[in-house]
Simulated assay, not measured.
Amino acid sequence: MAGMAIGPIRRSFAPWNDPSAKAFIEFRNVTRSFGDFTAVDNLSLKIYEREFFALLGPSGCGKTTLMRMLAGFDAPTSGEVLLDGQNLAGIPPYKRPTNMMFQSYALFPHMTVWDNIAFGLKQDGMPKADIAKRVEEMLHLVKLETFAKRKPHQLSGGQRQRVALARSLAKKPKVLLLDEPLGALDKKLREETQFELIDLQQRLGMTFLIVTHDQEEAMTVADRIAVMNHGKIVQVATPAEIYEQPNSRYVADFIGEINVLEGRVSASPSGGARLECVAAGATVETRQQVDAKPGDQAWFAIRPEKVRISRDAPADPSVNAVPGEVWDIGYLGDVSIYHVRLASGATMKATITNTTRLVERPISWEDKVWMTWSVDGGIVLTK
């Protein structure tokens, strides 16, 4: 896609770190109940202008309900939803400066691409000349100029997705709401479209809010992610912080592959945290300062790519090293994932990058191996 690289923009964009920055979208103590079921539970959240924000979580966690309340399709049982300082209570969806792109795309099958994009503009009574100009702008934006006269059934899934996106953007909303927008696309097209969405959002200077259960999608597109569970926000942070510094076992386990070793905190000569993981047969030493006292239960979480695997025992096998047997190997082309069975019966994973052609495995099934990691390779979690 032509234009200026967006790296410098995204790298310096962090209004959430500015105490004086004003939230563009704000949920204040919002609760939404359906009978005895609480979909959103006393939730507060701030989203900033021009931010690409992701709501991430499993089905039923409340993320879509939260988005629907912002769009006006649902109303809070209690609490307030504000947009650009205005309380949205009582304002119908068609009068809100938001537009929503649904997972199903909801295109009109009997209308052409051109008419689908123009539909909302006609409903608003925009002059014909202005409608034509805006539709042409949108077609150019999503690169569908040559498909204007086609109907939805004559398009591929990716093209229908672009039409839905163009229709959502045509009214120039202040906020674009994306509800699982790429779920119907195949993996390769979904990955390509994710980067197109990022570029589009930056060029338009708009605020995007995306709902997804796809962790990789959220990690790719978002400036920040809110991980949700049972109607509450568990953690809000940048993708890197969510991945490298999860605040709980739930977040650590929800985002990507991870090894979690249960242990007890013990005194550490380094001033960091030491965990005695008896079940795994490992003593874990970290530089991390932990709010726990000796004897407290804690968990050590480490990503598979941070674990080294070798047939040779380390020079000091007493710390951050555990022996095991290769139980299974998953070959994914760019990486291989080794599942190693420990003496306790637990399994740890190590991911090795395949930097050379895999003709003969240096480590294979049933090999006795050692798994090791550095003192800053993982994180100690106390909840």
Rank of each mutant, 00 (worst) to 15 (best):
T356S: 10
S336R: 15
C61Y: 12
V113W: 14
I47P: 02
R162T: 06
F13P: 04
G157F: 15
I131F: 09
E51I: 07
S364Y: 03
K188F: 00
L204Q: 07
Q245P: 00
Q289F: 00
E145Q: 15
A273W: 05
A273Y: 01
L176V: 03
A350L: 08
E325S: 06
L139T: 15
P19M: 07
S310P: 05
T31W: 11
M228A: 05
A54K: 07
E216M: 09
P323I: 08
D214H: 06
D214E: 08
E366A: 01
G345S: 09
N17M: 14
L332S: 04
M138D: 00
E360P: 02
M69A: 08
D36Q: 15
V260E: 01
K368P: 04
E80S: 09
P317S: 07
P323Q: 10
I131P: 06
R96N: 12
S268A: 13
K122V: 09
V113S: 07
A280P: 01
P304M: 05
R287L: 00
A280C: 03
K122C: 02
Q159A: 14
P362K: 11
T351S: 04
T31N: 12
F53T: 07
G271S: 11
P15F: 12
E137I: 10
F24W: 06
H140M: 09
P269C: 10
A23D: 04
F52G: 01
W16H: 11
Y48R: 04
T355F: 06
R249T: 12
E241Q: 08
K368M: 11
T382I: 08
P173T: 12
G60I: 03
G90R: 05
S248W: 09
A292H: 03
D130Y: 04
S364E: 11
P173H: 10
V175R: 03
S266K: 01
